[in-house]
Simulated assay, not measured.
Amino acid sequence: MTRLFAAVLLLTAAVAPAAHAEDPKYSPAYDRCLAAPSGQSTMGMIECIGIEFEAQDARLNRAYRTAMKRMELPRQKAALQKAQRAWIAFRDADCASLYDQDWGTISRVEAANCRLDRTARRADALEDFRKQG
């Protein structure tokens, strides 16, 4: 593991929210992408994160649709829809705050990793939403 890669892992770990003790469910392809020589550069990391974000965003959308199907009443569906829209706005604004061109390219990695991490964690939460209820 290169020093840059190790430093980025430490930095991105610090950015991840501490609300969940478990790591989010990432694909094995994501780890392989980051471990590849092309995944060791800043641009390579951003590309790997982008590819995994697309996969996690698709999983999030599937989990949301499934959670909506679990809602029996229109008010329950409306409440989940309102929460999801607010969550998306928060995720996007909060993660965007981690990037500024004056902070160097590592801030792009931090912001992209924030979006990925939050999306995967929200997908995890929606997969379990109201399963028992």
Rank of each mutant, 00 (worst) to 15 (best):
A89H: 13
G44H: 01
A18K: 15
Y99P: 13
I88S: 07
Q76S: 14
A96H: 02
D100V: 07
D92M: 07
A78E: 14
A86M: 14
D31K: 15
D57V: 01
A63M: 08
F90S: 07
L80A: 07
L80V: 01
I49M: 03
K69W: 05
S38R: 07
K69T: 02
Q56P: 03
P24F: 01
C48Q: 09
A89P: 14
F90E: 10
M43C: 03
F53P: 04
A79D: 10
A89S: 15
A67C: 08
A79N: 10
E72Y: 02
D57H: 05
A86W: 14
R75P: 12
Y26S: 02
A21Y: 07
R91W: 01
Q101W: 14
D31N: 15
A29T: 06
I46W: 00
E52D: 00
A21M: 02
I51E: 15
A67H: 01
Y26D: 02
R32W: 13
A55W: 06
F90Q: 11
A36K: 14
H20M: 11
D31C: 10
K82N: 13
A19D: 14
M68L: 08
A21W: 06
I49K: 05
D31P: 12
L98Y: 15
I88M: 14
A63G: 04
Q56D: 06
E72T: 12
Q40G: 13
A78V: 08
A18P: 09
R32T: 15
R32P: 12
R62H: 08
N61L: 04
L98F: 13
A96Y: 09
Y30P: 11
A78H: 10
C33R: 04
I46Q: 14
Q101P: 13
C33Y: 08
S41W: 10
F90M: 14
M71K: 06
F53M: 06
